[in-house]
Design a binder for these strands. Sequence first.
DNA 1: GATAGTTACTTGCTTATTGCAAGTGATGGC
DNA 2: GCCATCACTTGCAATAAGCAAGTAACTATC
Lengths: 129, 129
Amino acid sequence: MKKTEEYRSKCPLSIALEFIGDKWSLVIVRDLCMGKSKYGDFQNSPEGIPTNILASRLRKLEENGIVIKEPYQDRPVRYAYFLTEKGADLLPILQQLVIWTQKYVPDCLTPPESFFQVTSQDLLRKDKL
Amino acid sequence: MKKTEEYRSKCPLSIALEFIGDKWSLVIVRDLCMGKSKYGDFQNSPEGIPTNILASRLRKLEENGIVIKEPYQDRPVRYAYFLTEKGADLLPILQQLVIWTQKYVPDCLTPPESFFQVTSQDLLRKDKL
DNA sequence: GATAGTTACTTGCTTATTGCAAGTGATGGC
DNA sequence: GCCATCACTTGCAATAAGCAAGTAACTATC
């Protein structure tokens, strides 16, 4: 992992944005929180993430220790993706983002009640939301 | 403001990322929370935001109702920037991002104690952190 | 053995964005 | 008239985003 000298500053907010400050990374983390783990799962999400962006973001999230990939099949070898503890701890951020949008954007969807009750620990036990 | 049909999906998380899912917007919001309001203030931040990016992001934040600009001088006219209520309500998101980074990135800075005690309401009273 | 289907990517290309460095405009001070 | 200040804009090169098609490694079917 990077030394703090390699970030554009030592501010923790600024550092966080170097990890997840783009339009797709937290969408992928959302899908992982919801129990999705394979390529087809992510591609079925309503945003229609381009396949090259999906591959690139999953690789970066894995490099940053937010996601791990585990083979679920041998011939050919194919991988499923899961959140690490570091990744699961992004959940409170997702929850706060949802609260913000629900307050300020009319007509957006409401996640299930469980979404606000689930904790990072729950995700690691692989409970589905 | 956009209708929900104009976002890439109706998911509140996804919508939020269309507003602030980049590496600079929340850094600017951080600076506004800290009481900064003029160009020179933002440019003095440690990340060294390029001036064209600063201008572009402030304009977008204003268009999205997250920031307002008010003239502080007439000749020539010059503007200072402040958070709206919508912008101040991003504070819990900033706080969660900081908690995450402090847990997972060694050697990052620690904000003042007040950062975690301040509320969105406090920001609107223009209390400095 | 050839063909088709499935899943997970990669590739080539176009378009868009990022960001560097310099420049511009409207003032005031000397 | 020149210089300084502050808030941007501009031109351009580099990088990233994303579209659409393609590829690889299997299995199933005929």
